[in-house]
Amino acid sequence: MSKFTALVVDDEKNICDFLSKLLMQNNYRVNCAYTGRDALSFATSQCPDMILLDLGLPDMDGMEIISQIRSWSGCPIIVISARSQERDKVRALDAGADDYITKPFGTMELLARIRTSLRHSNRLNSGGSLPNHPYQSNGLTIDFSRRKVTLNGAPVHLTPVEYKIVSYLAKNSGKVMTYSAVMSNVWGPYAESDNKILRVNMANIRRKLEKNPAQPVYIHTELGVGYRMAEDGQDP
């Protein structure tokens, strides 16, 4: 199997070094770029399989890089950000980034994010068999073709809106989905900008799916950003 190529964009040389060492240990081929200009020229000449992007670059706004790359490529972009920048994360995700990871991150966490993003992009590239293949994780099953949700074998009754939310998150399992992405998918592009209705629905869903709503197993909250559903256990 040929190696995946990753492009690491960060102006801190130390971070680049440790990320590239980590990725090489895990069988990725790695390129580093310290500036936005380098990142764009690398991306166009090498067509990496995925990009790790720090938003705070000296010469360019990270958002600009995302939108430029998104204009010609769908390769996964994972944003590296510091925690207090909720607004930046949401902007980056809505601009086309696939996921984000917060500094400082564990190596396991980062590798898992990368695997998830690569899997999603592969599925999109190969035409995607996803609608027929049921979601399964920890006893929760979602059968997309029959629109049936079961928890440990027992059927769960969700309202149509609740089902729409859950199935959208399940189809993008492992990835964070922003409030606005879920809203426009469930209520259409002209949905209100206030996400309260989504959060109320989510509270109800949690009460139907989770044993303890404050310790969810299936749908986690990323405060101020959106929701992340547990990875599909059956995925190859």
Binding site: E12, N14, I15, D17, F18, L19, K21, L22, Q25, G56, A82, R83, S84, Q85, K103, P104, F105, G106, T107
Partner: peptide, 28 residues
Amino acid sequence: ILRSISHDLRTPLTGILGSASSIAGDLE
């Protein structure tokens, strides 16, 4: 200021934590 401080403080810590764990987990 808050944003740049938070970036400037977290970045080196990320480097330290990451490098340490990557040395600890080096199989070669």
